[in-house]
Nucleic acid binder design. Structure first.
Lengths: 246, 246
DNA sequence: TTAGCATACTGGTCTGACCAAGATCAGACC
DNA sequence: GGTCTGATCTTGGTCAGACCAGTATGCTAA
């Protein structure tokens, strides 16, 4: 994982990529800067233009650089979409990874909520409160309900004021929303879930308001555990209806 | 001649990338599969080879695909290096991100240790024990000591048997080792750190052995907190020292 | 001074070609 | 018949030059 010397030795794509990486890591290329044109880069490094484009494209998918048609290539601020893409692809090929990603999500959120207890400001509280209210309003709707649920959890992470945690969290956004949504479809099957959803989120909210990291973490963890339990029971088929009718 | 409106109005790179993404996400392209040759792909999609190469290169940096010289392009299992690259670049341009990454690391490890308590097997215990012993042996060496420290923490994450957590953790490996190393250099300044390092890690190890997630998490958190405290004092001490020597 | 246009420049793409080396298969040899 | 060997096909790696379509800029004319 060490930086390869960019002088010579590498060839083609590697040479260009290494050249640019060095400037980017060293800081001589900062966000907002415009790179020299592809042609110049090509002649400068003694490679052909397609090769240069390969390197630029690579940096593009990494979210480091943006190629603007007929304008030039500019350095951008690192973007989340990379992680998004990665997780999307990774999950598509390893479905069993979903549980893993869920664990990562729990990890991120539990840490985020601890930070949120320390760092949350009024605006964060308000956002959480709005999300909480929305959860109550949309309790009977699958789509809107799932959205509200997601918004609440996102608000927690945002309240941590940690860029990295936010980035990681949103990189799993697609999966999370999907997960939230399918969970939300259980609401009909489990009437008791309404109470769970509303009360649990409220308790989490209160813990953050109280700025009690331990309680917030514990409550959030319990929230996830109960959600898992519901899903487990759904799989087993042990529905409220069944048990109630007996 | 040109079947421009085959599917959508996407053009060039996007067309190829979307084509491949579709197959990859749908699962018709699985790890181990070999893609058709660049030339075939080019004629199939009605684009030129350089464009195809751009798309393949993009997938390569995403760790989805591997281009093997004179062999062909094969689908690989998602690789960590993407996240590594991303974090490297991201950090180079936003140094203030380091604390954030540290928080993410704490998040990952604390979740990992909980899972480790449930999932760790004999081999994991042995690995942890070896790492623990190594910490004791190298307590007076900065480099080896830092390495041992890192290995111990990595062993925890590995013991969680969570691919995603492991991936995320190792993606911050570079930063972590650096962090660990600089912390280790404080050992000389604070003799009490030896006790801290050895006892803390042992306590963490014991908690995992006891399969007690709550205790393990709490102990690990305390471990990080104490480490931060040492570093804080080191900063203050350095200031005192320099100001005193003047 | 300013409006307007020509031109150089930029990315986006294609074509066709060459190289080096793995893969393959036919034919020669044992 | 079985195995070895070499020609050939195929594959990625790369290059050179060209054309297009807009953008930016500067220079000229009003």
């Amino acid at each position: 994982m060490e930086l390869k010397r960019t002088t010579e030795g590498e060839k083609g794509f590697e040479k260009v990529f290494a050249f640019l990486r060095e400037r980017l890591l060293a800081g001589s290329l900062k966000p907002g800067d415009r790179l020299i044109s592809e042609r110049e880069l090509a002649t400068l490094l003694g490679v052909s233009r397609p090769i240069v484009r390969e390197a630029l494209r690579a940096l593009t998918v990494l979210g480091i650089v943006e190629i603007r048609d007929r304008i030039g290539t500019v350095v951008t601020r690192p973007d989340v979409s990379v992680l998004n893409d990665f997780f999307t692809f990774a999950l598509a090929q390893q479905a069993d990874m979903l549980d893993d990603v869920m664990q990562a999500r729990v990890a991120i959120e539990c840490q985020a909520i601890r930070l949120a207890c320390e760092r949350a400001n009024i605006a964060d509280f308000e956002r959480l409160q709005r999300a909480l209210a929305r959860i109550g309003e949309t309790i009977d709707e699958a789509d809107a309900g799932g959205m509200a649920d997601f918004e609440f959890h996102r608000a927690i992470v945002v309240a941590s004021h940690s860029e990295t945690l936010t980035v990681l969290h949103s990189s799993m956004a697609g999966l999370l929303t999907h997960s939230h949504r399918s969970r939300r479809e259980l609401v009909q099957a489990f009437p008791s879930m309404k109470t769970y959803l509303i009360d649990d989120h409220r308790r989490i909210f209160e813990a953050v308001i109280a700025r009690d990291p331990e309680r917030a973490d514990a409550t959030l963890r319990k929230h996830f555990a109960i959600g898992d339990e519901y899903r487990r029971r759904a799989v087993v088929g042990d529905i409220d209806k069944t048990s109630a009718s007996r």
